[in-house]
């Protein structure tokens, strides 16, 4: 009895989290999986139609645009908010005024996605917008443009807005990681005459790996599921040119009320997310285990 209990004990720690996630997140997910094989408009009961939704997805001309945009978002997010977040965290760590810098980059995080979208729509406005006004004022009116209606400028412009919002979050997670790094190895290589870059590249960055893993994983997931900002700023337009898979899914589900079809897009999207973040996580966990 006691031994059984001791064996079960580690699972008891995990159980509460598993219960909450299972009941409130995984169960709805399973229901959506079921819906993806049906036709459903929320009013008449779901009708089973097999793989039709998935077949339709493959023949949809806009599917490729959404997929491309989704990957552009992924790459852009890994490059900008993650890269910048790491850069700022490393550079700003333990310098004078660090607190001020950190707060500045943190502010956008406290603003909701909807408000962020509104602010940036306004930054990008073609006539009264902040960006174009500045460009015209400094004699660069040739650079002024309709940021949200030109393709692919619109997607890049929104990634810039997202960078503004998310860099602070990544910076902070990196900072937490930097705090946990023991001082001794860093001091040791410095004494041996390593440059700042060498210290970072060969000592700090590898020690930062657990937090890098958090940041990259979250960024992968968030960027692949990117929805809020696009929906406020362009609604995926003009003519569906800035849609990501998540926006397409939302449009089918909550504008057209093709719930089954929307569910099939959600499933495809999740598979992409699981494949990418899963393989990244696995590779890292393996490395961790080896150490």
């Amino acid at each position: 009895m006691r031994r059984a209990l001791r064996k079960a004990a580690p699972y008891i720690y995990i159980l509460p989290a598993l219960f909450f996630v299972g009941a409130f997140l995984l169960a709805p997910m399973l229901y959506t999986f079921y819906l993806s094989f049906t036709q459903y408009d929320l009013m008449t009961p779901p009708r089973f139609i097999g793989l039709d939704n998935y077949r339709r997805l493959l023949t949809e001309p806009n599917f490729l645009t959404s997929l491309t945009n989704t990957f552009v978002w992924m790459l852009g997010t890994l490059l900008l908010p993650v890269g910048l977040g790491l850069f700022i965290a490393v550079v700003v760590d333990r310098v004078a005024l660090a607190g001020v810098f950190k707060s500045v980059f943190y502010i956008p995080l406290t603003i909701s996605a909807v408000a962020t979208g509104l602010i940036w729509t306004w930054m990008y406005g073609p006539d009264l917008g902040v960006l174009n006004t500045i460009l015209r004022a400094v004699g660069l009116s040739g650079w002024a443009r309709s940021w949200l209606t030109e393709v692919p400028t619109n997607t890049l412009a929104m990634i810039a807005a997202w960078t503004w919002k998310m860099t602070g979050q990544n910076m902070i997670i990196f900072l937490v990681g930097l705090q946990a790094i023991p001082k001794e190895p860093v001091e040791a290589v410095k004494l041996e005459g390593a440059t700042e870059w060498q210290t970072f590249r060969y000592v700090v960055f590898p020690l930062l790996r657990p937090m890098t893993m958090v940041v990259v994983t979250m960024s992968l997931i968030n960027s692949l599921n990117q929805f809020d900002l696009i929906y406020v700023m362009t609604q995926g337009g003009p003519y569906r040119s800035s849609e990501t898979l998540a926006v397409t899914m939302y449009r089918e589900s909550f504008t057209m009320f093709h719930m089954g079809y929307g569910a099939s897009i959600a499933i495809v999207l999740s598979i992409i997310v699981i494949l990418l973040s899963g393989s990244y996580l696995r590779a890292n966990l393996k490395q961790e285990g080896a150490q």
Binding site: T121, P126, L148, P238
Partner: peptide, 14 residues
């Protein structure tokens, strides 16, 4: 006007 102009946020001001 430029078609990127928002009908509710920008047009009334213009």
């Amino acid at each position: 006007v430029d078609p990127g102009t928002d009908l509710f946020a920008e047009v009334p001001r213009m």
